[in-house]
Write a protein that binds this DNA or RNA. Structure first.
Lengths: 292, 292
DNA sequence: CATCCTTACGTAAACCGTAACTATC
DNA sequence: GATAGTTACGGTTTACGTAAGGATG
């Protein structure tokens, strides 16, 4: 309900600096600066005093902040009220889905849990292109939750995660490679190959895989990816013809790869990502899944 | 402070249809429709029931309208408060200026009125390209007032106008025409020429000029312009080489014309355009000019 | 058929991000 | 040199308008 710039203003005041606010909002500090300039010039009043140590609201800024906060409360209350009556029979949970965070397994779990009586589910697609951090930061608006691998500890700072099961680690082999014809791989097959693996320190499971490779299969050439796999990662590996550590659920992400099981037992836990401050509705939903 | 779409939503509910609201807001009904679609999809709730006779808020829409109205009140109160304290010494009045609504004469009047002690003036340029209606509808935000010809009664529906003086009607002659060399024109010079004149029914003064031409100088070919002169009007006449009825203040608008006085006494009143619901500050300012 | 909402499509403006710069501690 | 805000520039998205379509009384 409030203008975006006003919300940004509040975050900037809370954070005490544009740069800190930019981390909360997942946009650049430049953008925040320009939003504040625009807001101030529209109001014709300076709201923030900028120093080299951060920003501080002016007197006008403090008054504005107060009103904005009250208006925000008002609007949030109204939205809760509205959402409540729009689905009078069953509350709805919006489950995000994307190529790399498919919700296929979720539907099984959900129906088994018997929560289908109390909730209705709405599937909302989202783009893998957007920063995942941004999607996670906005859980509760638009998307209530999604399913994804949750091995990396970094997610736990940003949202709550309900562990639900495991994905098997596998190897994605470029189709043009002879090995892609095989039905499963063994360590011997990998000797001398390049293997894409997520940056060290991101995932405990993959760190131990990395250790095993380094100590026992040193001929495998490990290549680092950024901390989060994206479609780009698949494209890049396909172009360069190198193997990837991947997950069974990502079997159909890129047609240029054959996803083959490997003679190991590495598994990555997956879970339901939802807001740190879940709505009552969402909290109840998680309870149902936990019991089930 | 509120999101634009929310303000549009309120107007749409007030007006009862997108098309009527589009006239109030000076944007197309298409744009309103898309704003409402976007708002509804963001909230995940339908706010408006659309029929072929207009739109009507749903139950959710009525609740939302109520909260939005309260939030709007809140924000307007805060803005008044803020604006009040930001210019502690002197309140500022923002005077709009454009090629066709120059503020040159205003400065004389203002200093003579002695109001320079109480107010400070800020000159804010605006584009003649934008619909003048839109500028007028938004007086009070960004621009508090501007100076312009105020003969046409239609303005009085949209805003308040304080009459301040008169512009002399003159003739703009394309430079390539021999008559442009003269220092002033007489009726004889115009016989057989084409003369651009504002559409009948727009301005009483120009309507009487038109009558005089029709009855006493029928050889002059009167060409209609749209109800408001724009830069385009000058460009068009320059291209087509036809004379224009113009004002002395528009002498320097287009280099392709010589603006010559004419042997007549037609004058168009000009005045200060300001909001129908002026702020206290603006009302006080108008008072000062009236006294002076 | 008049009125209103909707769809399609091209243009114009707003938004955001990277990178380079400045100032202060 | 570390950390803040600012400026400049380029690409992308969003917003808006015109024109044409479609539904309803």
């Amino acid at each position: 309900m409030l203008d975006n710039r006003v919300k940004t203003f509040m975050k900037a005041v809370d954070a005490g600096s544009f740069s800190r606010a930019s981390k909360d909002l997942f946009i650049s500090s430049v953008s925040i600066k320009k939003q504040m300039d625009s807001l101030e010039s529209e109001l014709g009043v300076q709201l923030l005093e900028r120093t080299n140590r951060g920003v501080k609201p002016t007197v006008a800024g403090e008054i504005f902040y107060g009103s904005a906060a009250r208006a925000n409360q008002l609007s949030e209350h109204a939205l809760r009220q509205i959402r409540g009556l729009s689905h009078q029979e069953k509350p709805t949970v919006k489950v995000g889905t994307s190529l790399l965070r498919p919700c296929s397994r979720f539907l099984d779990i959900w129906t088994r849990a018997g929560s289908s009586d109390e909730f209705s589910i709405e599937i909302v697609p989202f783009e893998d292109g957007e920063k995942l951090d941004k999607v996670i930061a906005n859980l509760g608006n638009g998307i209530d939750c999604f399913l994804g691998p949750c091995d990396a500890p970094r997610w736990f700072k940003l949202c709550s995660v309900l562990k639900l099961g495991f994905y098997d680690c596998a190897i994605a082999v470029p189709r043009r490679h002879v090995l892609s014809e095989k039905s499963h791989l063994a360590w011997d097959d990998l000797e001398g190959q390049s293997l894409m693996l997520i940056e060290k320190g991101t995932s405990p499971v993959l760190d131990s895989l990395r250790s095993e490779i380094e100590s026992r299969h040193p001929s495998i050439n490990v290549v680092d990816t950024p901390t989060v796999y994206g479609i780009d990662t698949f494209n890049q590996c396909e172009r360069e013809g190198i193997f990837m550590e991947t997950l069974d659920v990502w079997r159909d992400v890129h047609p240029g790869f054959a996803t083959l099981p490997m003679e190991w037992d590495y598994r990555i836990p997956y879970g339901l990502f939802y807001s740190k401050n879940p709505s009552d509705r969402m909290a109840r939903f998680v309870d149902l899944l936990t019991e089930g």
